[in-house]
Each structure stands twice: as C-alpha cells, then as structure tokens.
Nucleic acid binder design. Sequence first.
DNA 1: TTGACAGGCAACCTTTTGGTTGCCTTTTTC
DNA 2: GAAAAAGGCAACCAAAAGGTTGCCTGTCAA
Lengths: 124, 124
Amino acid sequence: MKADGRSRRETSRPMSKPEPVDPGPVEVFAALGDPTRLSLLTKLSDGQTRSIAALSADTKLTRQAVTKHLHVLEHAGLVKSIRVGRESQFGYRPGPIVEARSYLDRVSAQWDEALARLKALVER
Amino acid sequence: MKADGRSRRETSRPMSKPEPVDPGPVEVFAALGDPTRLSLLTKLSDGQTRSIAALSADTKLTRQAVTKHLHVLEHAGLVKSIRVGRESQFGYRPGPIVEARSYLDRVSAQWDEALARLKALVER
DNA sequence: TTGACAGGCAACCTTTTGGTTGCCTTTTTC
DNA sequence: GAAAAAGGCAACCAAAAGGTTGCCTGTCAA
C-alpha cells in the first residue's frame, strides 16, 4: 500500500514546493541497474544539460527508447527535465546518488563491525 | 572497453579457484534493485551465515523464490554459498559493494568538479 | 531404516521491461 | 506559411523477471 510519504511531517513548513522527494534506495538501484541508463547518468553527471536528441545521438537505440530510460531515471529522482522551447533539457540531480552511497556505506559499516567483533572474539 | 580486471596478476598462483570475479557495477546495481534481494543482503551483511530455509523464514515468499534471489545475488558476487551437510550456507561478500560505492563516488566527484568549475567561472 | 528436513530442478504462468513503429503536436527556421 | 526539428503518445511485441507448484535427491536423526 506504499505509505503516502508526505502525509505527516512538514507540518510547520509553509506547504512550499512539492519537491519530488526521491524514492527509496531500491528504486534508485533499479534505475542504475541498466547499462543504457547508467551511461546516460554518468554522461549527465558532468553537469551539462542535454536534450533527448543529443542523448540519443550516441546510442544505437531509438529516441523513444532513450526517452523511456530518461523517464525511469527521472522517476528515481536521478535526473530532472525542463522543457525549453521545443526541446526538453535533462540534467543531473545529485540527491539520490548521495543517498544510495550512504546506504552502501551503512551496509559496509555493518559488515566491518561484524568483522571487528569477530576478530576481537578470536584474539581474546 | 572495461579492462578485464583479472588478466594479469595471479600468474604465480597454481590455477586454483576460478574466483567468481565480481561483475561490473551494472549487474551489481541491478541485483540491489529489488526489495527482497536488498533486504536479504542487508540481513547477511551482519556477518552471520544463513541457510536458505532460515532466510525464507521471514519473507512471505516461497523457498524457491528466495533461492532464485540468492542466486542472483551470488551471480553478482554479493554473496557466496557453501554446502554444509544438507544445507547451503549463504554469506556476505563485501567486494562488489565496495566497488559499487566507489563507482558512485566517481559519479559524485565528477558532479562536484563540474559544480566547482561553474562556480569559479561565475565568481570570476 | 524410515521419516522428516533442506534443497535442487524443471515446467509453467503472469507481469514488467526494453524496445520498436507510426502518427500527431509544437517550435523553429527559411 | 511550409518544411524540418524535437518530442509526446499509444499500440504493439518479445524477452526477461518474479513467482508458483510438483517432484526428486541427499542427509540427518529417531
């Protein structure tokens, strides 16, 4: 049932921006788990904003295929798009990557602790 | 082009274990991009090794479903299994997570550099 | 030695995913 | 104002993913 995620909390804030609120790590990892999308993202992470046509240029895929991938990335909050004139410019959004990284950090940390405990136990 | 990553090195070792050689970040991210698998992995990252039955216990899924997920994780190098007696024990393998993290680090780094350059340019 | 427990294997099913083609709308540009 | 460039939308398709059931093989314990 997915738990609204915007119901409680933020009671004080003046109801300002909707702010896509990047989804959990699972969706982010899923979005990264495709070669096309990963390369699109790393390309965009250079800070430059690009049109769909530009991004489709160097893949063998159709423009529509690329479009779909971009939407997946956008849904995961990894990328944002704004329509400017006749083209929509896609740009990198750092948030989810940072979160994903810290998620992995926590996993690693748990592992390291476990190792440390084991070591301590053995050396005792 | 990806650079084998296991070609040189180990020339001296007597052709011992194939050593799964964890696959690229894409496969790792794909493996993490599923709620069941992510929770299996975080569970295992406490360093304890668990049987399939034990891991299936607290999910609503079938044992076989869990088995499949474990194999996906194993293929991605995130987990290893050894058969002990009548049960196979699954354990965490830290390598790929570390790699994945450093991949995200590089993406973040590229983004940060881009930002810095932009800032420098503007403030000039 | 006979259950019961743990797991492998395979067939099968449904939904999702990744991709395509075709066509229509909106901006540019000449 | 008409052609071209950029995209959106929708239908459609094949393959992969996620899951289930059924059955067979080892292994442990009584």
